[in-house]
Amino acid sequence: MNLFMLLAIAAAMVLIQFVVTRWVKLNRLAWMGIWWAALWAAFSYGINPPLPNSIIVLFMAIITIALVAYLSADNEELKQAKESIVRFMVTRQYRVALLIVMLVIPGAVAAWIFASMNEAPQPPSSGRTIHPPPPSSITFQGTSINLTTANNPIRELQHTDEAAFAEHVANGRRIYFENCFYCHGDNMEGAGMFAHGYDPLPANFNDATTIAMLQESYLFWRIAKGAPGLPSESTPWSSAMPAWEDFLTEEEIWDVIIFLYEFTGFEPRAQGMPH
């Protein structure tokens, strides 16, 4: 959060509410414009890291709809707002101001077009589909694995044989640091030494919305099949993940999955639900 900016916006609003209104009477239309500008400034400059433009547009569209609804929800206020616009356009007193508005609006549009035409070329933005859907079953080194029913065989050791379970976790740690940490990082935040070369960046496993929401069989599929095994739907995928079935055994993959959950402290999503 950019607290300085947010406080500045709040202070400006307080100033308008308690000081400016002593000299100028503001109708609902004017307040609508002030609120719109304040919220736009808060979304654009008050949040750090900055919000993507697509999100600001979405939020401001919602706010615009809400403000228009507020303005028009009261017949008297709407009438006053309409009258103030008409008065501004027909009263001689506002001739200069009207002229300025008539020049500023097309001028702003022209400036915006000029600025956007002079921007350096950028790759198009795209919505990334985070979770590709897994197939029902996969073939792993010649063996068929049903992903709908597959469970991590190491998981039951957690309660039956803690020492053996700890060995698997340690093995998972070794495998992770031998193979995965170059991209996913030593803290699993997706900021390994190779990460800067990728677009999109490697997944951040500390994020409560990644592995914490997935079943272990899903992780098995993603690790085993990597980018080459991504589904044919929703293409093109952007992933540099290798197919680890060419380098790791089935048990090693389950071990590293256990380690991911142990390290981050998350629980995997359980399978199935009562029908």
Binding site: P50, P52, N53, S54, I55, L58, Q122, P123, S125, S126, G127, R128, T129, I130, D199, P200, L201, T209
Partner: peptide, 12 residues
Amino acid sequence: TPHSLVATVEEA
């Protein structure tokens, strides 16, 4: 608010 955001490479 979407979980996965539409963003340019710079924004991402």
